[in-house]
Computed example of a mutant assay.
Amino acid sequence: MNILSRPPNRPYRNLFLAALVGVPAGSLVVSLFLALFQSTSLKQSLTLIADALFVSSIGYAAMALLLLAYGLPALWLALRFRLAGPATALLIATLPGLCIWFLGGTRGSLAWLPLAISVATGLAFVALAYRGTPSNNSFKPKPLRGSD
C-alpha cells in the first residue's frame, strides 16, 4: 500500500461524512481538555463539556464554507494528480487548522479548536476512505468449470 498515492474509496461521500464526524469530535476533545485541566470546579467542567454541542453547531457553518472553498477543490486536485493517499489527505485536512492556529496565536485555548476539528476530520476521512483493501477494477474472466 502506497501511503502517498493510494486512491480513497468513495472520496466525496467520505469527505462529507468525515466533516459530520470531525466537528463534534474535535470540539469535544477541546472541551474535555479544558474541563480536565483548566476548570476550577465540577460545575464549570460540566458546562465546558456541554458547550461542545453549541460549538459544534457554529463549527458546522464554518465547515460548510471550508468544504466548498477548500476541501472539495483540494480533493479533486489530489484525485486528478493521483496524490490522494492517506498521508496527503491527513496533511491537506490539517492545513487549515494549522494556519488558524499560527495566525490566532498558539497560546489561547480558542486557537486549538480549529486545529482539533481539522485533525479529527482528517483522521475520520482516513479511517473512512482507506479502510479495507483497495478496489481492483480489472476484469479477469473465470474459466468455465467442467470443460476439459
Rank of each mutant, 00 (worst) to 15 (best):
T88Y: 08
A120R: 04
A93Y: 03
S118K: 04
A129R: 09
Y60P: 09
L144K: 11
A18H: 10
A78N: 08
T88I: 14
K142D: 11
F81E: 07
S27G: 07
W112R: 12
A69T: 14
L103G: 05
V29I: 15
I92Q: 02
L123R: 00
A87F: 14
A116Y: 01
P96S: 03
L83I: 05
I117D: 02
P96Q: 07
G132W: 08
A52W: 01
P7N: 05
M1R: 06
A93C: 10
A87D: 09
L66K: 02
V23N: 11
N137Q: 13
T40L: 12
S57L: 15
T106F: 11
T88S: 09
S147D: 10
A78D: 04
V119T: 07
T106E: 14
L34M: 14
V29M: 12
L95G: 00
Y70N: 04
A78G: 07
R82G: 00
W112A: 14
V30N: 11
N2P: 14
L103F: 13
F16S: 10
P141R: 13
R13P: 00
A62T: 14
I92A: 09
S39I: 01
A74P: 06
A111D: 12
L98S: 02
L65W: 09
A69P: 10
L46I: 01
Y12A: 11
L128W: 09
W112D: 05
V55Q: 10
G71K: 05
G105M: 13
L34Q: 14
